[in-house]
Amino acid sequence: MSAARNPLARPLARLLEKPWLWAFVGATLVWLATIPFTPGRGAGDVLTAAFTFATFFVIVGIGQMFVITLGPGNVDLSIPATITLAGSVATKLMDGQDALIALGFVAALGCGLAVGAVNYALIRALRIPPIIATLSSSFLIQSTAIAYGRGLRIKPPPMLAEFTTARIFGMPVLAICVILLAAVMAVVLERTIYGRSVIAIGQNQRAARLAGIAVDRTRLATYVMSALFASLCGYLLAAFSGGASLNMGEEYLLASIAVVVIGGTSVAGGFANLPGLWGAALFLFLIVTMLNTYGLGAGIRYVLTGLIIIAVITAAGGRKPLR
């Protein structure tokens, strides 16, 4: 069957080539496997919950994806600590008052800016791999957050809390905002000099430098951006879950890396895509929902989550990058 005879064949073939497709296929399959077992809660409710929680995965995933795309060894391990720090600082500053929402927002982003700058300063000045640099700084950030946030039981401002939990026709408003954010970042990745620089550096840093790309500035911007997204996630998460807590960032280390990998972005760097983040984030949340619905205990749930992540990366790892 040639493409000329069937006008649908070409777009279909191109769709099948997209690396992000499988994350959405997986998410849909898991969703379909879950809904027959959710009496009382409809299929739509499951989807609403999935979009609500996937939103936070996607926010940190965007930052992590740009970092990972910079090439081998680039990964931001300070995301969980940054989430906790930004969440605690913002909640404490806002003190539950609607008038201070903007101040909290600026403070949270300020935390992110500082963390990102420190991370990159460590990478450059000490010439250590980003994994070690972000790991070391995460220790410091985590301690700062713990010391600062001890005994913190402040409710977020009601208006902000309302915004993070609001829905339009069952769709979380926050999720709509983050879908738009992802779309903007997709344009940044594909159509701006910065985005193309990130991809070029990930494919071959030496070649990128020789081609006149501002490698240092691009890498600095990427680490700062990752920390900014982490702090944004911390700010929103604190508002969403009724206050900051000291372990609020914990699960985001695995989640931020997993959504990037499952979403079809190359872990070796140089190839990235935004839509996959959403597919992967929905997939991750729906898996947990499915295992919960089947009434499995915490132990089995952990084991299966781990095995699924390894299975996905094993399946994806064999694929040759498209050049």
């Binding site: 990964v75 994994i131 280390l253 695995l254 890396i257 997993a258 990998v261 872990v267 070796a268 205990g297 915490a298 132990g299 089995i300 749930r301 952990y302 084991v303 299966l304 989550t305 781990g306 095995l307 699924i308 992540i309 390894i310 990366i313 094993t314 790892g317 064999g318």
Partner: peptide, 27 residues
């Protein structure tokens, strides 16, 4: 063997394994 044969990033594989070990330990 898996990491070598499939050329996988060890960070992701071991991060997944940490859940497996934790789960088995809880069981």
């Amino acid at each position: 063997a898996l990491i070598h044969l499939r050329n996988l990033p060890s960070i992701v594989v071991t991060l997944g394994m940490s859940f497996v070990w934790l789960g088995v330990a809880v069981l």
